[in-house]
Computed example of a mutant assay.
Amino acid sequence: MYTDSVLLESRSARSGVAHRVEVLDKVKALAFSTGSAQATTRDVANYFEVPLKTVEKVAERHREELANNGMTLLRGSDLHKYQTDTMSVSSEPESGYPQRRSGLTVFSRRAVLCVAMLLRDSVVAQQVRNYLLDVEESARAHPGVEAVRQSTEELRRTVSTLAVGYGSLDRRVGNLESAGAELGAVLQELGPVIGRLSARVERMDDRVAESARRTARTEQLVSAMSQRLADMGEEMRAMRGELRGVVRAVGAEPTVPPPGAES
């Protein structure tokens, strides 16, 4: 049977009851900085009503145990996403401008419960441990009730997870709707410009088509003239051949007119 001192001293004992995160809400509402199920170090300190440094020391001394139960150091894209969610959910930021940071420690509900089993001088943590011990004793005395309670708790966690996912999806849909509205306004402004450009392009197409037709007709005329000139050349060669035949037949030589004579 667990006792308060056992929970404070035994890591294996804490591990055996770390899943009973529902006791946190039974003692006091755990407020998160965002709609996600992650509490900052300040959130945890506010819940247990202790200085921020106290939680930081506990996190440093028991880092491995808390990390195994859901304490995470956010960096890079994960940190950016968390800060974006914080600014989108919180209506009263702590300062006028978001502060740049290289990392941020956040706690799952399971990690917060582990902190409750490690804090000695917090009244709220003591209440959590007392409630936790009562739940464990009741579970041993009434196993059927415990099975129902576990099923109910699993359902509650599922609903909570779905609610968080819906909140994120709702924000994304809202962002898409806003972007769609802005795009619609831009397209509406560009509509007349696009219409004028389209009309100019159509006129240019008509001119190009007319130029193509004129070029085709010109090519046809040039081709006909070339053919006519070729035919005239053949006719002239035939006439020269006939003239030479006549000259030979009469025995006459072609007379070359003197220079300056009229033709």
Rank of each mutant, 00 (worst) to 15 (best):
A238F: 08
R203Y: 04
G241P: 00
G195S: 14
E202C: 00
L183C: 11
S226K: 10
G184A: 15
E234W: 04
G167V: 01
R228T: 13
A238M: 07
L183T: 07
N175R: 11
M239I: 04
M232T: 08
E235I: 08
V250W: 13
R207T: 15
R200Y: 11
R196A: 09
A209K: 13
G184P: 12
E189Q: 06
T218R: 10
P258F: 05
A261M: 05
L169E: 11
R213D: 15
D206S: 01
E202P: 00
I194W: 04
L169K: 05
M236K: 15
R244E: 10
A185T: 09
E235Q: 13
Q227N: 09
V208D: 05
R171A: 06
R217F: 07
P192F: 02
M204S: 13
V250C: 15
R240C: 11
V186Q: 13
E234N: 13
E242S: 15
V193M: 07
S178R: 14
T218A: 12
G245T: 10
V247R: 13
A185L: 11
G233C: 02
P257I: 03
G195P: 03
V186A: 14
E189G: 05
Q188M: 10
G245I: 00
E219K: 10
A216G: 12
G260S: 00
M225P: 08
L183H: 07
G191I: 00
E202D: 02
P192Y: 03
G174S: 13
V208A: 02
M204P: 03
A252V: 06
L197S: 06
G245D: 05
P192A: 08
G251R: 12
P254T: 07
A209T: 08
E177D: 14
G241C: 02
A249M: 06
T218Q: 12
A238P: 10
M239K: 09
D206V: 02
R244Q: 06
R244W: 01
G260N: 03
R237E: 11
R217L: 12
V250D: 08
P258T: 03
G251A: 02
V256D: 08
R217K: 14
A224F: 02
T255I: 12
R203V: 01
R200M: 04
P192H: 11
S178N: 10
D206L: 01
E253V: 02
R228L: 10
M239Y: 06
E253T: 06
R203A: 14
E210L: 07
A212H: 12
P259F: 00
R172E: 01
R214L: 15
D170F: 03
R228V: 10
E262S: 08
R240P: 08
R237I: 00
S226R: 09
L190D: 12
P254V: 09
G241S: 03
E242M: 05
M204L: 14
A179G: 03
R217M: 08
E262V: 09
P257G: 01
R214V: 09
R217Y: 02
S198L: 05
D231K: 10
L197W: 00
A249K: 05
E182S: 09
L229G: 14
S168G: 06
E189I: 02
A261Q: 07
L183W: 01
